[in-house]
């Protein structure tokens, strides 16, 4: 344990990257996933088809390939993200970081869409019919009636998706973002005799982080159950 404690500030910084990747990609995938789900369940056949194709394409591709695509193939087609250069304290969010956020977002969006779609399917058809019957257009039916209820039903699967994403951020360690996994690898190289402790310590931190998410999700689920 001493090794991790001796390097506490470096470890904290690494988890700072991990969490910032998680938060930014989480928010973005939440937004895009909702839009994609609306397209998927909407009445416009072309949009629904396009959303289905997106989900099939992205969900069936390994995350590492998606992120490597944005990291190495992206710049070749002009996606350099070189305009991204933000420093928050010791966190330096550069173009590599941006490519990772984009990769994580693109990937997680597909899962958010499917989690929300399962929630939409859980909403009784009569709810949408009643909303149409009072004259709400499709957007209003979704925004006022279906999605709020679908969100409730989607909390457990959405929590699973975002928990998976939190752990998926470790893939970014391979691509030059000095997040938790990259830091762990660095420490295990530098302190070969303490490898087991380092592994256990990093695993425990992840367990705690995920537990916080699970707790929040359970609270949300209970709070929204009233209606």
């Amino acid at each position: 344990m001493d090794v991790v404690l001796d390097n506490a500030s470096a470890v904290a910084l690494a988890f700072g990257y991990t969490l910032s990747l998680f938060v930014v990609a989480g928010v973005l995938s939440g937004i895009f996933g909702t839009l994609l789900a609306a397209m998927r369940v909407g009445p416009v056949a072309v949009l629904s088809r396009a959303a289905a194709i997106y989900v099939t394409l992205v969900r069936n591709t390994p995350l590492l390939i998606v992120i490597i695509f944005f990291r190495f193939a992206g710049p070749k087609i002009g996606l350099t993200w070189s305009f991204v250069d933000i420093s928050i304290g010791d966190l330096n969010l550069n173009n590599l970081y941006a490519a990772c956020v984009v990769g994580l977002t693109v990937y997680t969006t597909a899962f958010v869409c499917e989690a929300l779609r399962s929630g939409v399917n859980a909403v009784d058809l009569g709810q949408a019919e009643a909303a149409r019957a009072i004259g709400l257009p499709f957007s209003g039916v979704m925004r006022e009636v279906v999605l709020p209820q679908a969100m409730r039903a989607s909390v457990p699967p959405l929590a699973s998706v975002q928990i998976a994403m939190l752990k998926n951020t470790t893939v970014c360690g391979v691509l030059g973002v000095l997040e938790a996994f990259a830091r762990m690898k660095g420490l295990t190289n530098d302190y070969a005799s303490s490898r087991t402790e380092i592994f256990v310590a990093f695993a425990l931190i992840f367990v705690v982080l995920v537990e916080v998410l699970s707790f929040a999700s359970a609270r949300l689920e209970r709070r929204w159950r009233v209606a």
Binding site: P43, D124, G126, Q127, E129, A130, A131, R132, A133, I134, G135, L136, P137, G140, E144, V145, P148, Q149, R152, A227
Partner: peptide
């Protein structure tokens, strides 16, 4: 046809369903 105009028309027609269909979250 389906769309804005239909929504406007539906606003003029009240509908009461067998299973009530009150908005459960409101």
């Amino acid at each position: 046809q389906e769309g804005k105009e239909l929504a406007n028309l539906r606003a003029e027609v009240g509908m009461v369903f067998q299973s009530f269909n009150l908005f459960a979250h409101k």
